[in-house]
Amino acid sequence: MRLPLPPIVIYALRRLLQAVPVIILIMIGTFLLLKLAPGDTVDALVGDMGGADADFIARLRQEYGLDQPVYVQLWVYMTKLATFDFGWSFVYEQPVATVLWDRLGTTLLLMATSLSLAFTIGIALGAIAARRAYSLTDNVISTLGLVFYATPSFFLSLMMMLLFSVKLGWLPVGGIKTIAGFYTGWDHVVDVARHLVMPTAALSLIYLSFYLRLMRASVMEVADLDYVRTARAKGASESRLMIHHIMRNALLPVITLLGLQFSTVLGGSVVVETIFTLPGLGSLAYQSVVQRDMNTLMGIIFLCSIIVVVVNFLTDLLYARLDSRIELT
């Protein structure tokens, strides 16, 4: 019996079904792993407070449901999750869904701008370097790539902060907006953009070096293949050759990397978000670990696993589009 659906939809449905047990396993595994860490959120809270008496601590544990055995806690959590109820964050005193939603925008904005900048500039520079391999241009580009690659993002962030905020006073040190500025409309947009310049630059320079190096290697490899020589013999111009014949094939490994990196989008910017105090998911995840805020952390991991599944699916679709020999089955 065949369903009268286009193959792409069947493929998507099948992938979706496969994803469910994967996500459930991830959630159970993470829950148990987190329970192995010494101490719980009450310990973290008491640490923040500078002390409390035993009754106070026992009452909090009871209130947070931490006095139950682990399997009961797990069961309670999983049944709630099945209805997409992420629970309550005891650190932020808000529903986890609200906490995540507030942070998601900042992280997506930061990561989308950084990755797209890194991707476009990276492949462009990589392609140029490959076409002029071993020339001065190539050496300059490759050296820059190496420098960006080797610079830790916290160092890059702090140095930029020192130069552009402390010495020159051009850009704000951190945060997502000028707090007592009360900007509206376009002023607000400009204000946010100014706050995002340095974090975006810090993040994208690192990613840029990945794409640059990979693209350069990939283009050089493809450029030597037979079909390129054939195309050239048939009189294709250099630009047509580059765009239609070389780039399209050279992009495959770069797309794989993009897919992989996009999966780490939510967690990948912990350092940059923390240094620039951007209220994003990366800094939230870090805080949640320190505070043992189980519900929030599980919520972030759930969101991450969904993004990984979706991005993997999109990457596969993109493969098929770029290389028609690949079939989706």
């Binding site: 902060m161 006073g169 040190v173 951190g174 240094i275």
Partner: peptide, 18 residues
């Protein structure tokens, strides 16, 4: 009150007058 977790960033914010 601004929350700045990173101590170096906090020092930079003080120096920048923020």
């Amino acid at each position: 009150w601004r929350f700045i977790k990173d101590k170096s960033a906090a020092a930079a914010a003080l120096e920048a007058g923020e």
